[in-house]
């Protein structure tokens, strides 16, 4: 077995961290290790946390993690923030709200930039889930970038998706309508110490009524005050109930297969793009075609046929 993979299985934090870096950078060494660890994955329950910007996602994740730690579970956390499309750099600040976990050996936290991915995730996030899973984490929490309109890709990877809203803003309801209704397994109205919380709960409940009228499960709506560790026990209880529900009705297998489908597509996408745009012999060819498109000697569709024809043969 690949050495770094072996050390990941031994829960060595430096091996875990380094393999994550390799996958993020598309380093050649990553794929061998990733091949070795897959057999050892599948145990971790993956919880996605998405919702309005500044809604308290990081604070909630810290408290959820602490609650699972009390139950003796090991926890991995992936905190995703947007990469600047201009500089390629990123400010990764979610850890500020998680420092209470910094010295806990049963918790591994990794911050990631989106590095050009749309949808609120980072391209390497599938790999990172596999790595944390293989390293013995029972629970993996993923914080997506704050929701604008279309950051709903978390559904492809999470077993349980938490959607975090806050009181007051008529926004919450708008946010739900923009696609969050369908992805939520549990709604959280955080900052329940703020005025207007009961009205927001009522609004969300009435939307859930419509959405779930033909479903065998009604999406719960919970109130929390993450900053005061209020409502967290109940939330973790709901997460565990949801997990049991998934296992009982076979939706679990469907979700997992969807995740592997998304992961497979992502691996192929990355490889193809690298092959076409980075591999030197192809790069020249692509540049030539772009030049020809510009000069109207060829159209973009025929150019794509030329590139893909070579690969698909």
């Amino acid at each position: 077995m690949n050495e770094i993979a072996a050390n990941v299985l031994k829960e060595d934090p430096r091996a875990i961290a380094r393999l994550i870096t390799f996958t993020e950078n598309g380093d050649f060494e990553a794929s061998n290790a990733m091949k070795d660890i897959h057999r050892f994955t599948g145990n971790a329950h993956v919880i996605g946390v998405t919702g309005v910007m500044g809604g308290g996602k990081s604070t909630l994740i810290c408290e959820i993690a602490r609650e699972f730690r009390k139950k003796g579970k090991k926890v991995g956390i992936i905190a995703i923030d947007p990469t600047s499309p201009f500089s390629g750099g990123a400010l990764l600040g979610d850890r500020v709200r998680m420092m209470e976990l910094a010295m806990d050996k049963g918790v591994f936290i990794r911050s990631m930039g989106t590095r050009g991915m749309l949808g609120g995730l980072a391209s390497a996030v599938y790999d990172v889930v596999e790595i944390l899973d293989a390293s013995g984490k029972d629970i993996i929490l993923i914080e997506t970038v704050g929701v604008g309109q279309a950051e709903v890709d978390i559904i492809k990877i999470a077993d349980t998706t938490l959607v975090v809203l806050v009181p007051g803003l008529g926004d919450s309801v708008q946010t739900i309508k923009a696609g969050l209704m369908e992805i939520a397994d549990i709604f959280i109205i955080n900052k329940a110490d703020r005025p207007g919380v009961n009205q927001t709960v009522a609004e969300v409940e009435s939307l859930v009524d419509i959405e779930c009228s033909n479903e065998d499960r009604r999406t719960p709506v919970l109130k929390t005050i993450a900053k005061e560790v209020n409502g967290i026990k109940e939330l973790v209880q709901e997460i565990e109930t949801h997990k049991k529900y998934l296992k009982n009705c076979k939706k679990f297998d469907i979700k997992r297969k969807k995740r592997y489908e998304a992961e497979l597509v992502e691996i192929i996408r990355k490889r193809l793009m690298n092959f076409i745009f980075d591999e030197s012999k192809f790069k020249d060819k692509v540049e030539l075609l772009i030049d020809q498109i510009y000069k109207k000697e060829i159209d973009p569709y025929s150019a794509a046929d030329k590139i893909l024809g070579k690969i698909l043969k």
Binding site: T83, S84, F86, S87, G88, G89, A90, L91, L92, G93, R95, V96, M99, A102, M103, S111, G113
Partner: peptide
Amino acid sequence: SLRNAGMEVIYTGLHQTAEM
């Protein structure tokens, strides 16, 4: 500035111990 120079900057806030 480091972000603007293309780096990934992890920021952890105040009052950190060496161990953290």
